[in-house]
Each structure stands twice: as C-alpha cells, then as structure tokens.
Design a protein around this nucleic acid. Structure first.
Length: 740
DNA sequence: ACGTGGCCACTTTTT
DNA sequence: GTGGCCACGT
C-alpha cells in the first residue's frame, strides 16, 4: 500500500512523469492539488533534493496549503522547497540581485493607489490633458505594455506616425523614470525586472536555472506573457516544467493573462506530454451537467467533459425575485434555516456575485439576522486611509527615496505644512535632482521657504528619531512608537470622532498583524525586518485571510472564488447586464462574452452538493433602478436540471422562521457593543477592567483568555489567546475587550 | 493653511 | 450612493 494508490490512473501518470515538459489539463475539482502535492512527494522520494523544487501558485493561501499538504506527506523535508506566488518569488530574487540592473535592493513596492498617485504626477509634469487621456486608461496601457514586455522605446517605435499614441509613449517613459527615482517597483515590474535580470545577468540566470530543476506552475491558464517568459527561462536548462491548468477557467484576460500560454503549450514544447484529468471528485453529476452545458457554448477551448462517480444529487434551485432586496432576504433566510435545522454550518455556504457592490445588501441582512459572515475583497484592508498612513510612515523610514510615502505623511497628522511648502520642496528637489526627503534634510537651502522651515525641520527630526528607534525596538514596539510620537490616534479622534472608532479598530487589527508577523518570523528563525513586513503586506490578497476553521458565511466575487469549493453555493445576480456585465454585452466581442461564460463555469463548479441560482427583476445600481432580464447563461442550463421556484412572494417570513427582526427597532449591529471611547491616560489604578486569566470578548476575534497585561506609558498592552484566532497582542484602548 | 460645499464620474473582475 | 477634486471662504 503506497500513498499513490488512492490516485486514479491519469493522476498517477501525472505524478510519475517527472522528466521533461508536462501539461496537465485539470478540469474543475479533478484533484489537481492532490496531484501536485503527491508529485512533490514522489520527486523527493526519488532522491530529488527539496531545494531543487519550485512550485508556483496563484495566491499565498494556496501556497500555504500546498506547503502544509506536502509536509503532511513527506514530513519536514518539504520545508526547503519553494512554494510561492509569482510575485513573492520575484521579490525574493530581486531583493538579492536587483542591484545588478541598477536598482537598490531595498526598493518599495507600489500598490494600485501609489501607482495612481505617481501617474497623476506624471500627467502634471508632462502637461497631459486628462480629458483626452484618463489616468486610469494610461495606467492600464502601461500595464499591458509591461505585461507584454514592450519597453518604452519599443512602444514609441510601434506608435510611429500616431501623434496621440506617441504621447502615451512619453507618459510610459516618464512613469518609468519616476518609479526608478522613487526606488520603487509596481506589481508588473516585479515580474518584468526579474525577467530582465535573468536575461541580462548570466551568473544569476545559471544560479537559478541550476537551483530550480523541477518547476511546477498552478493555475497556468491565468499566466501572462512575462510570467510565461519567466518560467521559460528558469526551466531552460533542465526542462522539467510541469504546468497545471484549465482553459475553461481562464478569467483574468483583463489583467493580461494570455490564454495562448495554455492553448499552445504543445507548440512551444514539442516534446510535451499532455495529461487530461476529467474525473471530478467535488460535485454532483447534476452540477457538472449544468457546468458542461454552459461552457459548451464557448468556441475557443480544448474539448473535454467532466464526469463523476458522486451520483446525480439534488436538482439545481433557481429563484427569481422582484428586487435585489428580496433576493438577499431569501438567501440569508435560506442559510439561516439550514443551519437552524442542523443540516449545515455557516461556513458550508458561499454567496458569489459578479461585482463587489452586490455584497452590501447581503451584509445588511446578515447583520440584522445576527449571522456571522465574511466578505472577501472589496476595499482592501491595506488600502484604508489610516492603514495607508501608517504604512507610509513605515515606508518613509524604510526607503527615504519613496517620495510618495514622504509626501503622504508630511502633514499627517496636521502639522501646518501646506501645499505651498510642499511644492517649494518638490521644486527644489527636482532642480537638484535629489529625493524629496533629501531636500527636506537640507531644508534651510530651499529658497522662499520662510516660516515653513521650522515645521519642516521638526518633521525631519521626527523621522530621524524614528529611524533611530527602529534600530533599537522590535517591530511591534516600533509601530507603537510611531503612533505615539506622531500622536496619530489623538488626531483621529479630534478630526472625526464618528469614524475614529472604526479607524482605531483597523489600526488595532494592523498592530495585531505586525505582532503576528513578528512572532511568525521569530518562530521560523528569521529576522523580523521592516522591509520584510512591508513586502508581505504589499503582496497579500484579501483571499489569503480566509480561515476555514471559522464558522462564517463567505461572500465574494466569482473571480475570488476560483480554486475554492463549498457544499452550498448561491450564484446571485444572474441577470443580463450584471452577469454577463453590461460592458461585455455592448462590446459585442465574442471573446469577452466567452470570458464571462468561463466565469459562470467557475461559479457553478464551486458547488459540491447544492447550487442555487438567483436573480432579481429590479435592482438599484448607482442610485438608479435597473430592470434586467434573466442572464443568458441561465438559459443555457437544461431545464430538467432545474427546480424552478416561483417568483418570490413575501410569504410570512416570521412563520417560516427566517428569524428577521421587524424592520423597526434594532437597527444597531448586535456585534458591536458601543461603549464610549476610553481616553488615554489609563494611569489610574483601575486597570483595563479585566485581568490575566479572564475570559474576554473581542468584536472581531471572538472569545479568548487574557495571558498577559503590561502597562505602557499611556495604555495597557494586552495579550490574548483567542479560541479561534490564536494569540494576539493589542492595546486595551483599541481592543475594547469585554470581560465575560 | 485648512475646511467645506458642490460638482463630477464611477463600478466589472485583482496579483 | 460615494469618493475625489476644485473653488471659495475664513
């Protein structure tokens, strides 16, 4: 009996085929993760050093899971294999070697917001008319150029003769120049610069080629041109490249994914072995039939048909509602009922939708019904204002060349440095061709700076002090020091007491993340560096925070759902104009519609047992009521698979036990016990109101036991071991822990 | 220097 | 319905 006995014939073949290029066409739910992990185990068993194995996944979460599962099979041996996303792998390589192509190794990573700010700057510098070229559009053009590995020079050549487009080439060039000046890379650069480095530096190239003798790439259908080039170079010496993907699940064309990477893999690698995995272990036959029926309407795909042993299962539920409001009410009520009857847990249920905006109605219903839920995506935690402010301080201290970060915090909290002063510094820096912060260091040479000088000097003194503090303190204490020395919290309260509460909760969560990062680093014997933390933060996706051990209903877009599975799936907003989106309908572009259809296919195949499809006749979009028709994708599902529910009537929700509170009364979120914000200066003898050993309740982390309390200068620092969320350190003032 | 009020564009999806 | 931006007033 070996671990490979549980695999089917095709899966085994994929596991044992270790030498040379291999394409695994893995249909949804066909056990590709099992194949990949077993393949790693097999390689190690065959005597391959773990050190020589590289596995690339789509998200950090997938990478974590894979590491765990490999460890389960081969023990800690798996520890030294590289499992990471494209982006984190590139960062790791670049941090070591990017100086060889003329960047500092402590570069900053720019997120979408930073890119926007930078682009605005470029637009200003070049006097671009934003009526003609929108910054959004410019960014997307630059991004696709980078994804296609087109340099500014090439771009300009291609645009020869078109005056307008030549202007875009100028924008591209200037944008690149600014990035370099700020010692920053954007997301696309992470990939592009790595390829550039490998192409240009023979020594680095052969080092990594020799290191990564066995390379595996998951979700291959969503790789773009640079990513393809990257793995092509890396695998060029040993050619042991195994890619796994499903062309029917390619949904990131808008982000540069090149479906040709998978469709023509066999043309590029003539000796490639191709293995199809068509047996599905996830869903019922009914669900698969529906998925197959939908996807069959696409033309450009590799023919395949999923099948399963799982049996027919339930028919698919389909409900039409008068309004989106009723749709949400039904879904929430249905889940609530199933849980009450003990049929399922909350976490068995996922609500999927096309656009993030649709989450709002569901959220409202969940709050009133008192049901735990988790929304994935939407406004990224790290792009909230207060978090970006703190991050900008950290970046300023970490990389003084990052002008965008410095300019963000120079007057936050308000310290009387206005636009005029900032512009003077800016112009001076530009003149002398030095960074913004370097200009501040020599502020007394700046012409006309006048009364602003003392304020600038005290800002510089603050940053310089913090730079010193960074060396002496651990990361956690250092972040606390920043908050205290800048008086950031106080300024929040002063500015707007209403939202200060939420912002402080976010800051509290951020601090917990810092603590978690530090503990994690110490546990794995690494150094908890500021740069390391910033890097991790820049590369996390919201989906990475999904925690299967927590019992909550999960809400997310169809895009985020890729790679996941749930016993019950609600595919909501199945309306023409919403899904497929209005844009793709009017674009009248077959390819775009096919991509939407693949998205539908992804959604359907997330369901293991129960699939519910819903739509609403009327819904508010951007404050306007729209009347949409049933989604064309719904009509592609054969009728016999569907139990069609009548149009929803408001049928005595109370007797049905939907459990909704009457509309009047009880509008407050029951999770949030509002207490007056406790002031700083807790130097009184009362303590935080609980003690070591007490059981306490936190709004986000649930119940836990207090393991430590230390009195800081102005606040108590509490360590709590939460039953589900693990150990967290936090400030008593933010945490608002309730003694149980 | 900084706050405010009105106008506008925006929403498809994200590492 | 919301957030960003500009113009204006203090």
């Amino acid at each position: 009996m070996s671990i490979y006995d549980t695999l089917n014939e095709n899966q085994r073949e994929a596991v044992f085929h270790t030498e040379g290029p291999l394409l695994i066409l893995a249909g949804a739910g066909s056990g590709k993760t099992r194949v990949l992990t077993h393949r790693v185990a097999y390689l190690i068993e065959q005597g391959v050093m773990p050190y020589h194995i590289l596995a690339i996944t789509f998200t950090n979460k997938a990478a974590e899971e894979m590491k765990e599962r490999v460890d389960d099979i081969v023990g800690e041996n798996g520890g030294s294999i590289w499992v990471s996303t494209f982006h984190s792998m590139c960062v790791r390589i670049l941090r070591r070697h990017i100086d060889r192509i003329g960047f500092d190794t402590n570069f900053t990573i720019y997120d979408t917001d930073d890119q926007k700010t930078l682009m605005k700057e470029v637009i200003r510098l070049l006097n671009i008319d934003t009526k003609v070229f929108k910054e959004r559009m410019l960014l997307s053009i630059v991004s696709s150029a980078k994804n296609e590995m087109v340099s500014p020079d090439e771009f300009e050549q291609r645009m020869e003769g078109d005056f307008q487009k030549k202007r875009i080439a100028k924008v591209y060039r200037e944008y690149e120049k600014q990035l370099k000046k700020n010692n920053a890379l954007d997301f696309d650069d992470l990939l592009l610069k790595t390829v550039e480095l490998l192409q240009r530096d023979e020594e680095v190239r052969s080092y990594y080629q020799d290191r990564f003798r066995y390379i595996m790439v998951d979700e291959y259908q969503d790789t773009n041109t640079v990513q393809f080039e990257l793995i092509r170079i890396l695998s060029d010496k040993y050619r042991n490249l195994c890619v796994v993907g499903d062309d029917d699940q390619s949904i990131y064309k808008f982000r540069g994914a090149n479906i040709q990477n998978i469709l023509s893999f066999e043309d590029v690698y003539k000796d490639a072995r191709v293995i199809k995995l068509e047996q599905n272990y996830r869903s019922t036959q009914t669900i698969l039939d529906a998925a197959n029926a939908v996807i069959q309407n696409n033309k450009g795909r590799k023919e395949k048909a999923l099948w399963t042993d799982n049996g027919q299962g339930d028919v698919i539920a389909m409900k039409t509602f008068e309004s989106a409001y009723e749709e949400a009410e039904y879904v929430v009520g249905d889940i609530s009922q199933k849980v009450r009857e003990g049929k399922e847990e909350y976490k068995d249920n996922a609500i999927l939708y096309r656009t993030n905006a649709q989450s709002r109605l569901f959220e409202e219903k969940f709050v009133t019904a008192g049901i735990p839920y988790k929304i994935v995506g939407g406004v990224n935690f790290y792009s909230r204002r207060e978090i970006k402010d703190i991050l900008a301080y950290l970046k300023t201290i970490d990389n003084g060349k990052d002008d965008i970060a410095v300019r963000r915090v120079i007057n936050v909290p308000k310290r009387g440095i206005g636009l005029t002063s900032v512009n003077r510094v800016q112009n001076y820096a530009q003149d002398k061709d030095i960074s913004f912060y370097d200009a501040l260091l020599g502020a007394d040479f700046i012409p006309d700076i006048g009364r602003g000088l003392s304020k600038l000097e005290s800002f510089v003194a603050l940053i310089e002090y913090l730079k010193g503090a960074k060396e002496k303190l651990g990361l956690f204490d250092f972040v606390k020091e920043i908050l205290s020395k800048t008086e950031y919290i106080e300024s929040l309260e002063q500015e707007d007491p209403e939202v200060a509460q939420t912002r402080m909760e976010n800051i509290d969560e951020f601090i917990s993340k810092v603590a978690a990062y530090e503990e994690n680093a110490i546990a794995s014997g690494e150094q908890a560096s500021l740069s390391g933390f910033l890097e991790e933060v820049a590369l996390v996706a919201d989906i990475d925070s999904l925690d299967e051990s927590q019992d909550y209903v999960i809400l997310m877009t169809l895009h985020s759902a890729k790679g996941l599975e749930f016993p019950s799936v609600y595919l909501t907003g199945m309306e023409d104009g919403l899904f497929p989106s209005y844009m793709t309908i009017v674009a009248d572009d077959k390819d775009e519609l096919e991509e939407e259809r693949r998205l539908c296919y992804v959604g359907i195949t997330r369901a293991k047992q129960h699939l519910t499809l819903t739509n609403a006749k009327r819904r508010m979009i951007r404050g306007e009521t729209q009347y949409n028709k049933t989604s064309r994708f719904l009509k592609e599902i054969p009728r016999y698979l569907i139990a069609k529910g009548a149009v929803f009537e408001r049928e005595k929700p109370d007797r049905d036990g939907f459990g909704f509170k009457p509309k009047t009364g009880f509008r407050e979120n029951p999770f949030k016990e509002r207490k007056p914000i406790k002031q700083f200066n807790v130097n009184d003898s009362s303590g935080p109101g609980y003690d070591v050993g007490d059981r306490v309740l936190h709004t986000k982390f649930g119940v836990g036991t207090v393991t430590n309390i230390t009195a800081g200068g102005r606040d108590y620092e509490v360590t709590v071991n939460f039953d589900t969320a693990g150990v967290k350190k936090m400030f008593a003032t933010f945490a608002k822990l309730q003694k149980q």
